[in-house]
Amino acid sequence: MKVLIVEDDSAIAANLYDYLEANGYEVDLASNGRMGLAMAIANSWDAILLDLSLPHMDGLTLCRKLREEARRDTPVLMLTARDALDDKLTGFVHGADDYLVKPFSLLEVGARLGALVKRYRGEVATPEIRFGDVRLDLTTLTVERAGRIIKLQPKGLQLLRILMQSPGRVFGRVELEAEVWGDELPDSDTLRAHIYMLRKALAQQGEPELIETVHRLGYRLVARDTDAT
Rank of each mutant, 00 (worst) to 15 (best):
Y99I: 01
L77Y: 01
A38K: 15
E207L: 14
H56N: 14
T90D: 04
R216L: 10
V214E: 11
R119E: 01
R169K: 15
G33M: 06
K2L: 09
R169G: 05
V124G: 09
V101H: 00
D225N: 05
A178H: 10
E207H: 06
D46E: 09
D83W: 01
W45P: 09
I149E: 09
I129T: 01
A125Q: 13
G172K: 08
L113D: 05
Q165C: 15
T80D: 02
L198Q: 12
W45T: 12
V143P: 01
G172T: 15
C63G: 11
G168M: 13
T74N: 04
A111T: 02
L185K: 13
A125V: 07
G147I: 09
V170S: 13
T142R: 11
A22W: 06
T142A: 07
E69D: 12
E184R: 08
Y17L: 09
H215G: 08
M164F: 04
G172N: 10
V214N: 08
K200I: 07
T190S: 11
S44K: 15
H194C: 12
A84Q: 13
L77A: 03
H56Q: 15
S53G: 04
M164R: 06
P154H: 11
E175M: 13
R121C: 09
I211Y: 09
E212H: 06
E68T: 07
T190F: 12
G24V: 03
D46C: 05
R135Y: 09
L138D: 01
G91Y: 02
V180N: 10
R173D: 12
P127I: 05
L60N: 03
G122E: 15
R216D: 11
D98C: 00
V134S: 05
M78K: 11
Q153Y: 05
Y19V: 03
V117P: 06
L20C: 09
M164N: 07
D97H: 02
Y17C: 10
R220E: 14
C63I: 07
T80E: 03
E177C: 13
K200H: 02
V124Y: 12
L29E: 05
H215V: 14
I211D: 04
D225V: 09
H56W: 14
H215Q: 14
R199A: 06
L37R: 03
M57K: 08
M164Y: 02
N32F: 06
L37C: 07
L163V: 11
K118W: 00
N15S: 10
Q153V: 15
V3K: 09
I41T: 00
G147T: 02
D9F: 00
D8Q: 08
L49F: 04
K102H: 02
L113I: 04
K151T: 13
A125M: 06
P127S: 12
A11S: 11
E179T: 03
S166V: 13
F104G: 00
P55E: 06
D86Q: 10
L4I: 10
R130I: 02
V170N: 14
D46S: 11
D189P: 00
V214R: 06
A228Y: 01
D187A: 15
